[in-house]
Amino acid sequence: MSEAPTYSAFLGTRRLATGPLSDTLTAVKTALDALPGPRTQPLIVFNDETGRPADFDWRGTLEEVLARHAPAPSRTGPGRPKLGVVSREVSLLPRHWDWLESHPNGASAALRRLIDEARKADPEGERRRVASLAADRFLTVMAGDLPGAEDASRALYAADWGAFEAALAPWPEDIRLHALYLAAPAFGQAQ
């Protein structure tokens, strides 16, 4: 995927927009405001990099929506905010903690180093793995009940492009095209 994540919005089975966050929010808010009555179809916005749905508050004007969901400014304080360090919990056995803490700069630095080395060892494999996960998450949400969904998932993880395309063939066009777009890197295809 690209450096800055793109977002894709679906109203029911119709894709409203795909693009940078501000462009997608603008397209969705404009479409919602143009609806003649209350919304009757589900609205789902996906982060294309992860395939996960993202929640947005659509109340107010377009300017209010954009301001509410603008990227947060860098915070100051403890930690390494410029690196985007986020605290989370990791469960390890005592021997793992002992090993990590024996490395220069502590356990966190050792974990970051190990992860970076693993990602660099097989960048193409990493790109395919990330794309497979994103496509699978999208398929689960948008196509889990469609005919051939299980076949599509099996073909995705078997890296069988022909079977993947065939499983998606009867699906609504926008869902099919977006699934192909997300899955293309998993198959080594250009987007």
Rank of each mutant, 00 (worst) to 15 (best):
G79M: 00
P81M: 02
P81Q: 02
K82F: 08
K82C: 00
K82T: 05
K82A: 05
L83I: 02
V85M: 13
V85F: 13
V86Y: 01
V86M: 02
S87D: 01
S87I: 04
S87Y: 01
S87R: 11
S87E: 02
R88G: 08
R88I: 09
R88A: 10
E89H: 10
E89Q: 14
E89Y: 12
V90F: 08
V90K: 03
S91A: 15
S91F: 15
S91C: 11
L92D: 00
L92Q: 00
L92E: 00
L93R: 11
L93K: 05
H96L: 01
H96Y: 03
D98S: 11
D98I: 08
D98G: 06
E101Q: 11
E101K: 15
E101Y: 07
S102C: 06
H103P: 00
P104C: 10
P104W: 09
N105L: 06
G106M: 07
A107G: 08
S108R: 10
S108P: 10
S108H: 13
L111R: 03
L111T: 02
R112H: 06
R112E: 01
R112G: 00
R112T: 04
R113S: 11
R113P: 08
L114D: 03
L114G: 05
I115Q: 04
I115P: 00
D116S: 09
D116Q: 10
D116T: 06
E117M: 12
R119C: 07
R119Y: 09
R119F: 06
R119E: 13
K120P: 01
A121G: 03
A121F: 14
A121D: 07
D122F: 09
D122H: 12
D122Y: 07
P123H: 06
E124R: 15
E124F: 10
G125D: 03
G125E: 05
R127Y: 04
R127I: 02
R129I: 00
V130K: 04
V130S: 01
S132M: 13
L133R: 13
A134C: 04
D136T: 08
R137M: 03
R137V: 07
R137L: 06
F138M: 02
F138V: 07
V141T: 14
V141I: 15
M142P: 11
A143G: 15
G144C: 12
G144L: 04
D145Q: 13
L146H: 07
L146W: 09
P147E: 09
G148H: 05
G148W: 12
E150H: 11
E150T: 13
A152G: 11
A152R: 08
A152V: 05
S153T: 12
S153D: 05
R154E: 05
R154Q: 09
L156Q: 05
L156N: 02
L156S: 02
Y157G: 09
A158M: 07
A158N: 09
A159V: 15
A159I: 14
D160V: 09
D160I: 12
W161F: 06
W161R: 14
G162W: 06
G162R: 14
G162F: 08
G162S: 14
G162A: 15
A163W: 07
A163Q: 02
F164I: 01
F164A: 01
A166I: 01
A167K: 12
A167E: 08
A167G: 11
A167Y: 11
L168S: 05
L168D: 04
A169F: 13
P172E: 08
E173N: 05
D174V: 11
D174A: 10
D174I: 10
I175R: 15
I175T: 13
I175S: 04
I175H: 12
R176E: 04
R176H: 06
